[in-house]
């Protein structure tokens, strides 16, 4: 046990004093925090709880392919229109779905109900919704697609498909930041 603690790559850390050790941890914290705050900042600006999503299925081909990165906005005041591409959540499903709006019903009191369909699917999405659900409502919407970058998100897909690979990379990066002095 102590043999490992004497290893050369730990020398840097072993020579640090209390303040330097704490700063090392803070440094790691700030890297994570910066990423988090950029994400939260994007949430605030776009109004969407998940401003960037990756397309996981081929159901919107040829518009979007697996691995495309989508930028979303979800401003309250913009109405949902037929033909728009929305990202929505369905109860009981973890992963949001990216599909096109097919039909919209708007009422005087402002409530909206709409139906979606994937461009590459032969039927509408009623089969995908929660049992008994026929329409989507405004609260189901995560955002509307405003821009995309092709194929960049394939890294995310790979990471999700091989979780061990993901954790290994994260652990390596984390250790490097913690053990390496500035």
């Amino acid at each position: 046990m102590f043999g490992l603690m004497e290893a050369d790559f730990l020398d840097d850390v072993r020579r640090m004093n209390k303040r330097q050790l704490y700063y090392q941890v803070l440094n790691f914290g700030m890297i994570v925090s910066s990423a988090l705050m950029i994400w939260k900042g994007l949430m605030v600006v776009t109004g969407s709880e998940s401003p960037i999503v990756v397309v996981l299925s081929g159901s919107m081909e040829p518009a979007f392919h697996r691995g495309d990165l989508l930028f979303l906005t979800n401003h309250r005041e913009e109405p949902i229109r037929v033909g728009e591409i929305v990202v929505f959540k369905v109860e009981g499903r973890d992963i949001p779905i990216v599909h096109r709006v097919l039909k919209v019903h708007e009422k005087e009191d402002g409530t909206v109900r709409f139906l979606t369909k994937g461009d590459n699917n032969s039927v509408d999405d009623r089969g995908l919704y929660a049992p008994g659900q026929l329409w989507l409502e405004k609260k189901d919407v995560v955002g509307r697609a405003r821009g995309f970058v092709p194929y960049v998100g394939i890294v995310t897909i790979l990471m999700n498909d091989y979780p061990k690979f993901k954790y290994a990379i994260l652990a390596c990066l984390g250790l490097f930041v913690l053990l390496h002095r500035e």
Partner: peptide
């Protein structure tokens, strides 16, 4: 004298605190 470094540590701690709180 550790004042110089302590102030830096304080700034960082508060910053990380804000992000933790947001989370």
């Amino acid at each position: 004298e550790h004042r110089l470094m302590d102030l830096r540590l304080l700034i960082c701690t508060v910053a990380v605190g804000f992000s933790l709180f947001a989370l």
